[in-house]
């Protein structure tokens, strides 16, 4: 059950955690048991998940913005309805994830307010602009492709509500990736200008997409405990390598060139990529990417513009309830 009300009681007054309880918890994790909302869990496990799931939810919601930029300019009606459906899915993914996060004891409104106040992070990738229609194809193919790579292992995450949300999300993501690849295929089989547009989009998105998997394993601060708690099943670098190996042949099929002149296939068949510019990643995370300010401004505006709708719905519900009470009293 997805309710936060049952979780709030024992959070604060448990200063010292019982070592025996912690050991029992780890034994359940090791036995591949799922942890459910009202089960005992270490405060740090709760905190880690709340941070990760709410960031994931924010990413889905902010992720609608770069794509929304092209709804009115989609080249055909077929492309337009597909893009609308995809963006609606992203919104739904945000909701599944907020619901999963709420089971850990924070309300959705608190999480949304934290995002709007600039206190919560979202995926760095959504701070890049969508300059041409080919960017929409590239986002579906690469950004959703990378997201799938990340999310499939999360379907087996130790926290039940998160794992269940991920199963729904993964089922829907595969449509997203295929619609993106189809856009790329159409452009690559089109005129020379269309193919050049596809190449330009790949050139701009390739490196930011590789950064989506997070810092390299040597410096990742969350990986060790997350692995012990089976929130994370593969390291950042392992997932990144899987993604590159899956994607390079797809790019070759399109006749596009991955913008990494140093890339080589090793004896085991892995495509070894060159050094990633982690300074760029840090800059984007710190708020200095090309679109950080735009994205936050758009989210705040949408939230403020929707305030009257929330107020009206609440007022209407209250009025109806008062009327029902009055009728019942008669």
């Amino acid at each position: 059950m997805y309710t936060q009300a049952l979780n709030t009681s024992d959070g604060e007054d448990r200063g010292v955690e019982d070592a025996a309880q912690a050991a029992r918890f780890q034994a359940r994790i090791d036995a591949e048991e799922r942890i459910e909302p009202n089960d005992w869990m270490p405060a740090a496990y709760r905190k880690t998940l709340l941070r990760q799931i709410s960031q994931h939810a924010h990413s889905e919601v902010v992720g609608m913005l770069p794509e929304g930029n092209w709804i009115t300019r989609a080249p055909t009606l077929r492309r337009k309805v597909a893009l609308l459906a995809k963006i609606q899915d992203e919104c739904g993914h945000g909701l599944y994830l907020y619901s999963a996060a709420e089971t850990l004891g924070s309300s959705r409104e608190e999480m949304v307010d934290a995002l709007l106040a600039g206190k919560a992070k979202y995926s760095s990738i959504f701070n890049y602009p969508t300059l041409t229609w080919a960017d929409i194809g590239t986002i579906g193919w690469l950004v959703d492709g990378a997201a799938i790579m990340n999310q499939i292992p999360l379907c087996r995450c130790s926290y039940g509500p998160y794992a269940r949300a991920m199963i729904r999300v993964c089922k829907e993501e595969s449509f997203h990736q295929r619609q993106g690849y189809e856009i790329m295929l159409t452009l690559c089989r089109g005129s020379a200008e269309q193919k050049a547009m596809a190449q330009d989009a790949l050139d701009r998105w390739w490196w930011p997409v590789l950064m989506m998997f997070g810092p390299p394993d040597q410096v990742s601060q969350h990986s060790d405990t997350s692995t012990k708690w089976k929130i994370k099943r593969f390291s950042n670098d392992e997932l990144r390598q899987k993604f590159v190996d899956a994607t390079v042949p797809q790019a070759q099929f399109l006749g596009l060139t991955v913008p990494d002149p140093g890339m080589k296939q090793d004896a085991e068949g892995h495509w070894r990529y060159s050094e990633i510019d982690w300074d760029e990643f840090k800059q984007v995370l710190a708020g200095n990417g090309p679109c950080n300010r735009d994205r936050m401004a758009a989210r705040r505006k949408a939230h403020d513009d929707g305030a009257w709708v929330r107020e009206a719905a609440a007022a209407y519900a209250e009025k109806r309830q008062a009327r029902q009470h009055a009728q019942a009293a008669e």
Binding site: D113, R310, A313, A314
Partner: peptide, 11 residues
């Protein structure tokens, strides 16, 4: 101002 909570429903 904090966003007011809306009722949670199970589906």
């Amino acid at each position: 101002m904090a966003t007011p909570n809306t009722t949670l429903w199970e589906v």
